[in-house]
Design a protein around this nucleic acid. Structure first.
Lengths: 339, 339
DNA sequence: CTGAAAGCGCTAACAA
DNA sequence: TTGTTAGCGCTTTCAG
């Protein structure tokens, strides 16, 4: 019980300007015809009193908040941060405010956060990936809150998708490696539990391999958290157990760990071992050797998500899906398979 | 005009349970004494109707939103992302929702965003650094919105600070370098324009140097954006123009650029050149050579900011300041000055 | 222990 | 062109 109590309200402005609150509302929202005289008086009163409208009250009256929500697994992942940055920037430029929540990759928490978002009355919601608790979709539909799932594109998804196909995205990487003569290919994947993007990438590698007569046995995969330290450790384990000539990593950070550890162990990259990443973080092209990786348009994804969400909200229509492409960037960590 | 229209309201629940809205409010907020029977009926009605309260209406009635705002320069900076991640996590655990806006390091936009935050009725606001448009403090005070400035600690600051002293933080780095015999020390600083943290670090280096009889002429400093590419370029320029044996970098990313470029140029680190960073990003300790840098407790800063902000809001008192320490982490990019 | 009623600050018909 | 009057969905005295 404090904050806004001391703030001048629309009524104060109305009194100061000698008009009705409806009129104040009209000039604030630049809607309807207002005489220049009245308009000037209101504007002046607003300035004098330093009036700041109450968005909450406005939302209550208008039944829309000019607010977008986003629930992401974590911010400690440069690629999500980049996407959210663009999402916010775009939303802001279109007059929307961002409400951000982090689920800590916890499905139950995510479900709870969706309810929170509905409580807050967001006009649209952005989620990451397609594997969400079913109740989430129900709640969202019941509340009439438009939403998109990003970072994935699956024609069969039940919600609009704005992203890329994580399965297909791995195809060029496998193809590239095999064209270099690699046949003993392993993978340091992201944790696939509750993560359709990570799982999709594993599936993509497996399918691509199988369509070319190879396979990806479970023994050739280790799942690792988004951490260089963990990746280094897993890399050691993987290399000890298997004779691999190429390792596909679920993301760039995992690849950094593999590369750094390979260097420490004196395994030459790409001489003795080829390595690929995923995301194309800005560091990847700077490293020596520069990382061969799959480029993802995180920024555009964020922009598009915000744009389409807002478009759908304002036109009262369904949210469009949008498929973005990915691209294999061949750099220096991949080379011909040795002997 | 849609979203919540279709949602069941408190009144619907009241009818369904055969009680008054006041009663529904009481059980939802677990406040006041309610008979078990009534409580059960209400809870049941809530469940049946799938009732989700409207936080906006609640905020309007209670004059507080259970919302915290944060305005940051960018999310494309791992250290801010980490701080915000912790800020959000803490706020969430205390029942608060985060409204996040990015100023793109634009002072004018920041000022505008502060107004937006006030419109949204945030109970508390987190800002980065101490150099803000004066009008910001006025508005915040007028609106009675509690706030903290993080990532800096300055006893003279006009707003509560939760962070570290950017000037003092550089002292151990300079001291370390000088104890290794360095006297030709340069700096790749962050852009100091509108950035008191970057400026503070430059000042810190300068003061430390001067207190030891050395100096930091303008010719020994180049300011660089937060970008490896830019840093590499600036590093080349700096090294061409000056004979330096050590370069202090304004942050780790700049240091990565310097290190990578030094390696490309065949300048051995730390053999021929010592390098230090600032932030201690997770990659820094993994690099080879591992980066000597200044450790900052971004996560704790975010936690504390949220905690103290909420504490102040709920106790109707002033926000406490908190000073965090920084620590020089001596690793492998610094060594004795050669000849 | 529960209900009635007023009001939070704003918008939106409907009149005038 | 402007004012009046209802609410938006919730909380909160104040009665009972």
């Amino acid at each position: 019980m404090s904050s806004r109590r001391q703030m001048p309200t629309q009524l104060d402005v109305a009194r100061e300007a000698g008009v009705s609150t409806a009129t104040v509302s009209r000039v604030v929202n630049e809607q309807g015809a207002i005489s220049d005289d009245v308009k000037a008086r209101v504007l002046n009163a607003i300035d004098v009193l330093n009036y700041i409208p109450d968005a909450g009250a406005r939302a209550l009256a208008m039944q829309q908040s000019a607010t977008l929500g986003a629930i992401i697994p974590t911010l400690n992942n440069a690629i999500f941060a980049e996407g959210i940055n663009a999402f916010e920037r775009t939303a802001q430029s279109l007059g929307y405010t961002l409400i951000l929540s982090v689920s800590q990759q916890n499905k139950v928490k995510e479900q709870h956060l969706v309810t929170k978002m509905i409580e807050r009355g967001v006009d649209g919601l952005m989620l990451i990936g397609n594997s969400h608790h079913p109740a989430i979709y129900d709640r969202l539909k019941q509340a009439g809150v438009r939403h998109v799932c990003t970072w994935a594109y699956d024609a069969r998804a039940q919600a609009p998708n704005i992203g890329f196909d994580n399965v297909q995205a791995m195809e060029p990487a496998v193809e590239h490696l095999m064209s270099l003569g690699h046949v003993r290919i392993g993978m340091l994947a992201g944790i696939t539990q509750d993560n359709d993007r990570a799982a999709g990438r594993v599936e993509g590698v497996r399918k691509s391999l199988e369509s070319r007569g190879l396979s990806l046995p479970q023994s050739h995969i280790i799942e690792v958290p988004y951490s260089i330290t963990e990746s280094r450790r897993a890399f050691v384990t993987l290399m000890e157990q298997q004779k691999l000539s190429a390792v596909i990593c679920g993301n760039d950070v995992i690849a950094y760990g593999a590369l750094l550890e390979a260097q420490r162990l004196g395994i030459s990259v790409p001489g003795q071992l080829s390595l690929t990443g995923f995301d194309d973080l800005s560091l990847s092209s700077e490293l020596n050797p520069a990382l061969t990786t799959v480029q993802v348009h995180a920024e555009r994804m964020g922009e598009i998500a915000a744009t389409l969400l807002i478009e759908a909200v304002e036109s009262q229509s369904d949210v469009q899906s949008a498929q973005l492409d990915t691209k294999l960037l061949v750099r220096q960590t991949t080379g011909p398979a040795s002997a």
